[in-house]
Write a protein that binds this DNA or RNA. Structure first.
Length: 815
DNA sequence: AATCAGATACAT
DNA sequence: TGTATCTGATTG
């Protein structure tokens, strides 16, 4: 055990070899964090990945400076998981490390040093640098590695620190634990004294001349008596700006109200009333038994339940079972937004044993969850995909809700991995079970489940026997020909909305395209506005009166005249959701029409406000992008309209039809949840298109059969495995040449029918980088590993060309 | 990622 | 000739 392979938080291939000094050889363990020098003068927090005794021949290994953990921060299961991820997804361990750890757990040169307590330093044995450092520490107690540079030459820093540590004079200060202070939230209440004395009239009289104070007092009193168990947040009082903190202070001074503090998770959680969850229905019970059976056989489950079939109830049952066995649960969601149904009940029952983890937490909040997971204080974690990396001790169940959702494999952030597939692997390492749940499973999962790799459980009935919504196709071509249209809406569709409004019900309109118009085109010269960073036309946003690039986010003001020919006639082409919203508002001027898309929801609490508005029935019609298909469960939505359904289908992507089906089904699930009379109107130029016909029939096994046949016909997943390699560089010509070279190398090893490209990516230039791609279609099964190793070989050969090292290369496995 | 050596560009 | 800037290689 003389040498250790260390993972560094850098996007570099493989691990790095370090010598383990004898005095720490007995304490160092796999999964511990260690400080190591790297490069000229940097110190990084690395992770011990492997031990061995082979002295490296190509270089001289440096020594580990010190160990940062008493116990390994990563359990062995996680080390195995990282290894698997990096091999399967062809990504670097360092990338995984950086993604997995909150930054304060991987401090770099920010690490602090301090003097060991009660030591006597023998200065005569020290060199100049060592003396400087000791003296500095005597004055300052704590010192940062970067600060040391001020008085010790860079090249000597590490040597100096090491020798002082060896002499037992100084030590590394691990301040992380104390750095985090649990946040306390201020709550308010009427003082017990007031409640006891029952002299309200007297009090109100005394506040006669202080109107606001009186109002505030009554406001708090009312809230408190309404529901004595509810805590009233202090910040809540001042939200609408009517009361100010001075009013509260005056009341507090008079001893009428008081504030108290409680520790709360930093993530705001639901504090309202708890809905009693009904017992499982017979159908749900049967499904749950099937889950039990599957788990006993050691198989995972795909729970395919139509919208509102009560998948959540089954999750809850299994979660409680798992916890009562003393194991932990990870509940994965594609994104943390509204997760009410699942949190409500769990929070009441498990309180502080319930945790949340997602990308939007601050670093300290993340560290807190790490600590709580490590101490086994969290029994259930509701989280997004980055929670796969937490140091679970005893994971028993992973639930992947909405498993089809693309949020599980975002293309923007490396490392590129699919959280759903990875969850299955991680669970396997922990000996845990997995439930994948969705109303519209991905074709891949469906196929696996049908091939008995997982247990397939189908819940075909809405909870409480509520009927599924009915689909109707409107032939827009016919409507146009017979002049029965107004703008983008057929008169029939308008009529149906009208009827819904008359019945005091709500309508949702789905149009999955942001902005007002996708292009502004000059009428006389055909000029269109391109983003200056990307080869993409800019979208016109009328509400903000600007042009936006949806890929890099660049914004520009809307041109009044054509910049090329100065014509004033600019045509709007391509309908966006803003335009649909505008049209509907004009058709129904007396009704409340709201818009929900990322642009209108950007303001703080915009989403929450709209949510309440819809819930209270103040909104009659919601127009929105795919956002409206998630998390909006209301009782009075009876109609869902999709005016331009075709736009979802004709996207250059083999998954376009699947996604269209998923989106339409998800959004249709919002309709008629209580009444069972929900209706979905799909307006299309191609009512005969198989996807629309199949959706209308609502025969789920037929739909998936259709998808699978198509996939098989064109050799797409799940019948093959795709790897996409994308090359990017500032210089078009350079990346073009590189991609040609990569193509030729790949063709040397792989059969021709496996390789598509190289070719320009659909977006030829993104953020000023030119992009080329090669798509690989590899066979499944035994041959896959062989083919993949050949891909690896090709990539290695490509990397050896020094001229191409500046080219950024992204590899997407299971594209 | 960060650093450093070497190459290139540019002003004196 | 010296200095600023860029490029590419290397790090254990």
């Amino acid at each position: 055990m003389q040498y250790a392979q260390i993972i560094l938080p850098l996007n570099l291939k493989g691990t790095f070899t370090y010598k383990v000094p004898e005095e720490i050889q007995s304490t160092i363990q796999l999964g511990m964090r260690v400080l190591v020098p790297f490069g000229g003068k940097k110190i990084y927090t690395g992770i011990v990945f492997e031990f061995h005794d082979e002295e490296p021949t190509q270089f001289v290994a440096k020594e580990v400076i010190s160990i940062l953990d008493e116990q390994p921060i990563l359990p062995l299961e996680q080390i195995k998981f990282w290894k698997w991820l990096s091999e399967y997804y062809l990504c670097n361990l360092g990338e995984i490390y950086r993604f997995a750890f909150p930054s304060s757990l991987k401090l770099e040169s920010e690490t602090y040093l301090k003097l060991k307590p009660n030591i006597t330093v023998e200065f005569e044995n020290l060199d100049v640098n060592e003396m400087y450092l000791i003296q500095a520490l005597e004055v300052r107690q704590l010192i940062n590695l970067t600060d040391i540079e001020a008085f010790i030459p860079k090249k000597d820093i590490i040597k100096t620190i090491n020798s002082l540590i060896d002499l037992q004079y100084i030590e590394i200060d691990e301040k992380i634990a104390e750095k985090y202070k649990a946040k306390e939230v201020a709550y308010v209440k009427i003082t017990d004294e007031v409640l006891k004395n029952n002299n309200l009239t007297e009090i109100l009289l005394s506040l006669k001349r202080a109107q606001k104070q009186k109002d505030l007092f009554l406001h708090i009193l009312e809230k408190q008596t309404e529901n004595p168990d509810l805590h009233i947040k202090k910040s809540e009082l001042f939200e609408d700006g009517y009361f100010a903190s001075s009013h509260f202070k005056s009341l507090a001074d008079k001893n009428l109200v008081e504030e108290y503090y409680m520790q709360r998770d930093r993530i705001e959680s639901y504090e309202g009333e708890i809905e009693e969850v009904e017992e499982l229905t017979e159908i749900q019970k049967a499904a749950k038994n099937e889950v039990d059976e599957a788990f006993e056989e050691g198989r995972n489950v795909l729970l395919h339940g139509v919208t509102s079939s009560g998948k959540t109830h089954i999750y809850l049952e299994k979660i409680e079972e798992c916890i009562s066995e003393g194991k932990n649960v990870l509940f994965l969601l594609p994104e943390i937004s509204l997760t009410k149904q699942i949190t409500q009940r769990l929070e009441k029952k498990y309180g502080r044993q319930l945790g949340f983890y997602h990308q939007k937490l601050t670093d300290f909040e993340k560290v807190e969850i790490w600590r709580r997971i490590k101490n086994n204080d969290v029994k259930i974690l509701i989280a997004t995909r980055n929670a796969l990396f937490l140091p679970y001790l005893n994971l028993g169940l992973i639930v992947v809700d909405e498993e089809h959702d693309s949020g599980y494999k975002p293309r923007e952030v490396s490392p590129f991995f699919n959280a759903k597939d990875s969850a299955l692997v991680l669970a396997n390492f922990y000996g845990a079970n997995v439930i994948l749940g969705s109303a519209t499973p991905s074709v891949e999962s469906y196929y696996l489940a049908r091939k008995e790799k997982m247990k397939y459980i189908f819940l075909n009935e809405r909870f409480g026997n509520v009927k599924l919504p009915e689909f109707e196709l409107i032939n827009f071509k016919e409507a146009q020909d017979s002049k029965k249209v107004s703008g983008n809406f057929s008169l029939k569709l308008i009529d149906e909305i009208k009827k819904t409004l008359e019945e005091k019900n709500q309508t949702m309109i789905l149009h999955n395209r942001r902005g007002y118009a996708s292009v502004l085109e000059c009428e006389s010269c055909g000029y269109v506005n391109y983003c200056s960073n990307c080869d993409v036309v800019m979208t016109y946003h009328k509400a903000a009166n600007e042009m936006k690039c949806h890929y890099c986010g660049q914004r520009a003001s809307k041109p009044k005249t054509c910049p090329k020919c100065y014509s004033e006639n600019l045509n709007e082409r391509g309908v966006g959701v803003e335009q649909i919203h505008e049209e509907i508002s004009k058709i129904f001027p007396d009704n409340e029409v709201d818009r929900m898309d990322v642009d209108s929801m950007r303001k703080k609490f915009a989403y929450e406000k709209l949510y309440v508005k819809i819930e209270d029935g103040e909104t009659d019609i919601v127009v929105g992008t795919q956002m409206i298909s998630k998390g909006l469960d209301f009782d009075h939505i009876e109609l869902v309209a999709i005016p331009k359904a075709d736009s979802m289908l004709y996207v250059q992507d083999f998954r376009a039809e699947e996604r269209a089906y998923q989106l339409i089904t998800q959004v249709s699930g919002r309709a008629g949840r209580v009444s069972g009379k929900g209706r979905i109107l799909i307006q299309t130029f191609n009512p005969d298109h198989s996807v629309f016909q199949l959706i209308k029939m609502n025969n789920i096994s037929k739909i998936y059969k259709y998808f699978l046949t198509e996939r098989q016909k064109f050799n797409y997943p799940p019948f093959t495995k795709l790897i996409m390699i994308e090359l990017k560089h500032r210089r078009d010509e350079k990346v073009n040449r590189a991609s040609q070279f990569l193509g030729s190398v790949l063709r040397k090893y792989l059969p021709e029918d496996c390789i598509l490209g190289p070719e320009r990516s659909q977006i030829a230039r993104l953020n000023n980088l030119y992009q080329f791609q090669v798509m690989l279609k590899l066979p499944r099964g035994k041959n896959y590993d062989k083919f993949k190793s050949l891909v690896l070989l090709s990539l290695k050969e490509f990397d050896e060309i020094t001229a191409y090292q500046s080219i950024k290369k992204d590899v997407f496995v299971d594209f």
